[in-house]
Each structure stands twice: as C-alpha cells, then as structure tokens.
C-alpha cells in the first residue's frame, strides 16, 4: 500500500457506497443495512473498505438501537489485518461505551468478551510478534472467535500472512526459511509453495532471498544544499540597480 488513496477509496467500492460514504446520506439510519451488506460482501470476497466500515460504526455511535455486535466484530477482524496501519484503533475509537443492555436479553453481547482478545491480537501484529500471534490465535482461548467469526472471513489467515510479508519485505534482503515459517505459520511444502508464489527464491541452505524493493534498499547519502539561481535573483537585481557609482557631487 504505497498510496493512501486506495485506502480512502478502494477501486472495488461500488458507486452506491461511494455516495453514502461521501455524502450526508451516511447519517441516515435506514442506510445501515446497505453498508452492513457491503461489509459481508467484503468478508466473502477478500475486499476491504475501511471508510465504509467506519460509516457503519458512525451510525451505531449515533443510533445505539442499531448496534449489532456481530457486525462490529467483523469490522474489527477486517481492520486487524491492515496493520501496521491504525485502522483497528480508528474503529475502536468509535465504539462509545454504551449503557448496560437490558438484563433480559436472549443472547448476551459477545463484543465485551471478544474485544480484549481482538485487541491482544492487534497488539501482537503491531509489534511484529508474529509467532506469538499465531500461538494466541490457535489457542483454546480464542476458539470462540475462530469458530464463530474468522472462519467466515474468507482469506483471514492469508491476510495475516500478508501483514507478516509486508514487515519482512521491508526489513530483510534474505531470511532463514525456518524463521519465515514461524512468521507465516507455514512449514515444509506449504511454505515452499507460498514463498514461490511471492516470487521469492530459496537457496540450497534454506535461505530465502527477498527481491529488492524501496524499503530494503539502503544507502548512505549526504544531502547537500543546491542553490538555484532564482533564489539569488532578488539580491542580484537589487545590486545591479544600485551599483552605479555614487560619487557625491562636490561643488
């Protein structure tokens, strides 16, 4: 992601959603279902549109009656894998603390229980602690999140791997395949296939080379000032205008 415009308006965003996201209709509670449908479309088709999802949270913020915890959790799952960008926190920021729900609800709100887990997962990704992320994600503690939510989110694990790939690509020119495997939670043939798909190459001693990119090419530079003529025009003009010899007329 080198340009933020893809983030602010992804090319996959349909015109109707663009109208909602950029216009005043985003405040109309009756549009919430359109945006929610769009979220589920993102979940199914590996697309991501942060601003549209924030628009849902905005409607929930202003209209607590609309609040749907499943939608919020799915939004947070999508935002999780955009690390190191701050999408996850931008979403959490809109979750106002809401008053305690009526006690006689049939189903308890799953969000309060899951939010700490999601936050922990997010922190691990932010800190590039990928092996720890996978350990937590595969643990029994997170079973509920896996079975009820991330399983529905097509390509979720792939998206997490992309987070790791972005971090590795920027910091390494070559990396031991074992280490890479722990970041991607892959080993053996799966890892080889994944590395090959990325276009990276593995040598016989198991070291993966990462092709040059703007972030893993380093260079010591000395930036020297380069003075342009236009900077000096004012000084020179002034000097030219006033440099006629002024010999006081001596009477």
């Amino acid at each position: 992601m080198t340009s933020a415009s893809n983030w602010a308006s992804p090319p996959t965003r349909p015109p109707l959603i663009e109208t909602l996201v950029s216009g005043v209709d985003r405040y109309n509670p009756s549009n919430v279902s359109i945006l929610e449908d769009y979220l589920y479309h993102q979940i199914r088709s590996e697309e991501y549109d942060c601003l549209a999802n924030l628009a849902i949270l905005k409607l929930y913020q202003f209209n607590p009656d609309l609040y749907n915890p499943d939608v919020v959790i799915n939004i947070l799952i999508k935002a999780l894998t955009s690390a190191p960008f701050p999408d996850f926190n931008l979403c959490v920021s809109l979750l106002d603390d809401r008053p305690a729900p009526p006690a006689n609800q049939d189903e308890p709100d799953p969000l309060p229980a899951l939010l700490p887990t999601l936050t922990a997962l997010h922190n691990l990704l932010q800190q590039c602690r990928f092996p720890a992320f996978w350990a937590l994600y595969r643990s029994d503690e997170v079973e509920g999140l896996r079975d009820n939510y991330t399983v529905e989110c097509v390509g979720f694990e792939g998206a997490v791997r992309q987070v790791a790939v972005r971090a590795v690509k920027a910091a390494f020119t070559s990396i031991g395949s074992e280490r890479l495997g722990t970041y991607l939670d892959l080993s053996g043939a799966d890892l080889s296939a994944y590395v090959e798909k990325l276009g990276w190459t593995t040598n016989e001693s198991g070291v993966v080379s990462i092709p040059p990119n703007p972030d893993n090419q380093i260079e010591s530079t000395v930036v020297q000032e380069n003075i342009q003529l236009p900077q000096l025009t004012k000084v020179i003009t002034h000097a030219a205008q006033t440099s006629l010899p002024i010999v006081p007329a001596v009477n």
Binding site: F172, T173, V207, I218, E219, S220, V222
Partner: peptide, 17 residues
C-alpha cells in the same frame, strides 16, 4: 535506515549538510 541480510544487520545513515 537498516536492512537484515539473514543474520547481519547493515546500517546506513543519511546526513543533511
């Protein structure tokens, strides 16, 4: 700036005159 080549960290510093 730096980059890791397997187990070696290479460092480059830019200076502004």
């Amino acid at each position: 700036d730096f980059v890791i080549n397997e187990n070696m960290v290479h460092i480059a510093e830019s200076t502004v005159g």
